[in-house]
Design a protein around this nucleic acid. Structure first.
Lengths: 213, 213
DNA sequence: CTGACTTAGTGTGTGATTAACACTTAGCAG
DNA sequence: CTGCTAAGTGTTAATCACACACTAAGTCAG
């Protein structure tokens, strides 16, 4: 008899940390749990892997089901395995990270989730399970990736101003950037292309840029 | 009835890509499978997660059991979930990366593994399961981490010459480094401390260095 | 209509870092 | 003691990162 059957299998799930920008600040998407355990507590969206489903699909599906948000770019960043992290039974959780532009967002809680809400990262509630640990790790990974600029496009609309891009950079890394140097860097990287259109606000219009393929 | 019980659980396993330097070249540790499926094929060491065991422990234990090698520093880098990656039943594999100095190595195959052997990365056999994919990813991750120099210490003896360190750097990244610039970088990073001892070979003895705490 | 305000947008000089280059030194082997 | 081989070391040129201040263009209030 193969070794594979000797032990009971753990459940496998995904948890997703979705970040967006709201009023210039980085926010995380949390759901209020609609079932035990941790009924009523806030948690990362996520759920169990189905047969014949890849982890990436599972993360996307669970996010959509629980929050109404569809993220096409999910990044797996760690797997958590503490034996008692779920009181029901053993659950291995594969954690994902996603970035979304806030205008794509219409939150719709599902049956599993009493509600879905954005929380500024500086003002988080107590979280269910080990989701505080998962979220801390997600935030570290996000900060280190953001220095390559292009991951930030996912936080912005399809066309954006350089000031918006810089704002996203500052919100994610937590560091202030110098305007001219930031623009020089972006130009050197060649990761954006200017368009002929301008964003009109209360002051001088700003040229709109778009990501390069 | 909670959602958690609705579906059968997959098995969860770890697979470990252990790298070392042998005669200046990067090598990977593989085992010859001693059981079906893929009986007789080469594969990464690894095995199934036991109850109440963390993934990190599982990786270390499996590596020790199957090859006699004890690695205290294992780095989790990705989780693989293709539904048909194991023909027996569904297996989710959490992949780990380890670096070892070649003088720590005494290979001992176990019952599961017919034998354990080092393979130069340029001369790999066909691999069982999706282990070629896992290994490719491991190699990418390794290359990107090696630029920080300090991960390379794990590939070298406790005390080493700067030429050895440079050799490790070149073997892992695949790029040649310029001797004086490499030494300058290492000095600037401050990640090594010189000792009073020298390595005596066929020519001028080279000063030995050790990692800074 | 106009003036004040606010954000958009641009260039330069300086210091730091990186990259490219060749020769001297010390031990070993014959 | 001579020749070989790897160890070890400084300098220069180019590039990159950073700090810095002003002009431009539109909105809004009066």
């Amino acid at each position: 008899m193969p070794f594979i059957y000797e032990y009971p299998h753990p459940a496998v799930a995904t948890d997703i940390a979705v970040f967006t920008l709201r009023r210039g600040a980085l926010n995380v998407l949390l759901i209020e749990r609609g079932a035990a355990p941790y009924l009523g507590a806030w948690a990362l969206p996520g759920g169990f892997l189905q047969p014949d489903e890849e982890l990436d699909q599972c993360a996307r599906r669970e996010l959509l089901e629980e929050t109404g948000v569809d993220a096409d770019l999910l990044m797996q960043f760690a797997t958590f395995s503490a034996p008692d992290r779920d009181p029901r039974e053993r659950v291995i959780s594969v954690a994902y990270l996603a970035l979304l532009a806030s205008d794509e967002l219409r939150l719709e809680a599902s049956t599993d989730a009493a509600q879905a809400r954005w929380f500024p990262i500086g003002d988080l509630p107590e979280l269910a399970f080990d989701h505080d640990t998962i979220l801390r790790r997600a935030f570290e990974v996000l900060g280190s990736r953001a220095r390559q600029i292009s991951p930030l496009f996912a936080l912005l609309p399809a066309r954006f101003t350089l000031s918006q891009l810089q704002g996203a950079y500052e919100a994610v890394t937590g560091e202030d950037a110098e305007k001219r140097n930031f623009r020089k860097t972006v130009a050197t990287l060649g990761c954006v292309r200017e368009t002929d259109d301008f964003a009109h606000g209360a002051h001088r219009p700003a040229r709109l840029y778009e990501p390069v393929v």
